[in-house]
């Protein structure tokens, strides 16, 4: 349990950061860091632990975002419920696409099939102009409604304010708690067995297919919830802002630089890459040039990720 206490301590420290220097830009950047940390951790569950190298995680993020936003706008569903329904919709889609993928053994097939699915989602969202306004952008998404907390009083979600930071912190801690329990549960052990050798795991009586389905579904739910949060945070969605390949590239970069298949790796990578991309903005046009170069240099220096580099090969 000591390890869990360390994580909790770190989370509390992060929670205190805005109180020290409540500069709105810093809070915004930290919100993005936590959002990507949750998203990358959920992808790591599928790719790092279950060994299904999905390249279409952005589909579930985008589905969560659009479902929650559209429900709030067209049917007046409360965004709080939207987080849940967005997550559920993404989870259902995850199960749907996971089914054909489970029959595929070669990792690239899974990557390309899921990528194809994400592109289908992007094009459909783009083409259904009547519903989504396509690339013009779906604007006017409602903010999260105010909540009344017994000790803190009323928490109202102004434009990109502190309450959003705390909401995503709660989501992130919740996600990590679920993942922490999952990795150490019988299901997690089964996953490890599957990753080491699918045949061996099958002979031990692990239901490989069911295990992978559960994990894929759960991971999609998490991505959907973060997507729904994102929709009510930035308040405007375009297909290319939530469904596009660059989001997947960032998730992969964060997770691999942090350490695929390690518990904290994706979070470490999410903070590193998000901060890097934000603070490289001062470089203007050179930003992406430096970003690409840094990705190459980092992977050359640490092909198995930062966390393994620091804590040794045996982390899992």
């Amino acid at each position: 349990m000591r390890e869990a206490h360390v994580y909790l301590g770190v989370a509390i420290l992060v929670a205190l950061v805005p109180l020290v220097g409540p500069d709105p830009y810093t809070v915004h950047v930290l919100t993005l860091c936590l959002l990507y940390a949750a998203l990358s951790s959920s992808w790591n569950l599928v790719s790092g632990y279950a060994g299904l190298f999905s390249f279409g995680h952005q589909a579930f993020f985008g589905l969560g975002a659009y479902v929650s936003a559209l429900l709030a706008m067209k049917a007046g569903v409360a965004p709080w419920l939207g987080l849940v329904i967005g997550g559920g919709a993404a989870g259902a889609a995850g199960l749907l696409i996971a089914l054909p993928c489970l029959g595929l053994r070669a990792p690239p097939y899974v990557a390309i099939a899921t990528l194809g699915f994400a592109e289908i989602c992007r094009f459909i969202t783009m083409n259904l102009v009547g519903l989504t306004r396509g690339e013009l952008g779906l604007g006017g998404i409602p903010e999260m409604p105010a909540v009344h907390l017994p000790l803190f009083g009323t928490l109202s979600f102004g434009a990109r304010g502190l309450p959003y930071f705390y909401l995503i912190l709660v989501i992130y801690v919740g996600v990590m708690a679920v993942l922490y329990r999952l990795v150490r549960s019988p299901l997690g052990l089964a996953l490890k067995a599957v990753r080491d050798s699918q045949d061996a795991a099958e002979s031990l009586g692990v239901n490989v297919k069911r295990t992978k389905l559960i994990v894929f579904g759960l991971s999609s739910v998490i991505a959907g919830v973060t997507g729904a949060f994102y929709a009510h945070y930035v308040l405007i969605l375009t297909p290319s802002s939530v469904f596009s390949v660059p989001i997947m590239v960032e998730i992969v970069a964060m997770t691999l630089i942090g350490g695929l298949g390690t518990f904290v790796g994706p979070s470490v990578g999410a903070f590193a890459v998000t901060l890097l991309l934000e603070y490289l903005r001062v470089l203007g046009d050179y930003r992406l040039l430096i970003y690409g170069t840094l990705l190459i240099v980092l992977i050359l220096l640490m092909p198995a990720g930062v966390v393994r580099r620091i804590l040794g090969q045996r982390v899992s």
């Binding site: 970069a253 992406l288 690409g292 990705l295 992977i299």
Partner: peptide
């Protein structure tokens, strides 16, 4: 994957 994505962004 990351190395070639990096090359792609760089180029």
């Amino acid at each position: 994957v990351i190395a070639t994505l990096g090359v792609s962004i760089l180029l």
